[in-house]
Design a binder for these strands. Structure first.
Length: 218
DNA sequence: ACCCAGGGTCATA
DNA sequence: TATGACCATGGG
């Protein structure tokens, strides 16, 4: 089973509200979700600042940018050639679908399917967008989630994305979207916080259950 | 110098 | 289905 809400409460009392996702508009959230793939958020912020200065954080303007021009601007976020293509693939789809006003009318399953049809958007990025840009009640799974909760003995360490997402969504069925929002952010925050204090420490949550959770490994 | 970050795709077996 | 290679910058 596992006390999923209990872990949430411990994380929340330890760290407090995380105010995710950082970003001024839903569209900026979506762009950030693509840029942050396997990348530290600090580097994503630099790339987003460049896009803002170039006035490219609207769908229309971004769509008319060349891949080469885009690659230069998002360079700090890494994988810049790959991500330039992914941003363009996404924004083309986004405009074709009628942007936010049209997409927000879709059911969550339909919207998710649409996002996943875009080359460069996988399950985690799609769920980031669903939760943090469209405010849909989906649980975002990442590497921290899988590590922490498999070490807790709640799930198998080899569990794949969809089954793990289902576990969280079933266990948090009675909770609202804000809890889903906060929970994923807290999981990420927990990993960052510990690693900042003790980089690669064997006591770090990435390797064993962090003492901060009050759940010593044994 | 080494590890890895708020992943995803593609080729291979 | 399940690994492995690849993408690439910047912080600790």
């Amino acid at each position: 089973m596992g006390d999923y809400k209990g872990i949430y409460n411990r994380l929340f009392s330890e760290y407090g509200p995380q105010s995710w996702w950082p970003g001024d508009t839903p569209f900026e959230v979506m762009i950030g979700a693509i840029l942050t793939q396997n990348t530290a958020w600090l580097n994503v912020e630099r790339a987003i600042t460049n896009l803002k200065n170039a006035r490219l954080l609207s769908a229309q303007d971004l769509r008319d940018t060349t891949r080469e021009e885009l690659a230069v601007l998002i360079k700090p976020s890494g994988y810049f050639n790959v991500k330039a293509d992914r941003l363009l693939e996404f924004v083309h789809w986004y405009c074709q679908q009628g942007q936010y006003e049209s997409l927000k009318k879709l059911h969550t399953a339909q919207l998710r399917q649409g996002l996943l049809s875009v080359k460069g958007i996988g399950p985690e990025t799609a769920d980031d967008i669903l939760l943090y840009a469209f405010n849909r009640k989906v649980f975002v799974i990442d590497a921290y989630t899988r590590r922490i909760f498999s070490r807790l003995g709640y799930v198998d360490k080899a569990i794949t994305y969809e089954p793990l997402r289902k576990v969280f969504e079933e266990n948090l069925a009675d909770d609202n979207t804000q809890v889903f929002n906060e929970y994923h952010a807290l999981i990420v925050r927990h990993g960052k916080d510990i690693c900042k204090t003790q980089p690669r420490c064997p006591e770090c949550c990435l390797e064993v259950i962090c003492p901060k959770l009050g759940l010593a490994n044994s």
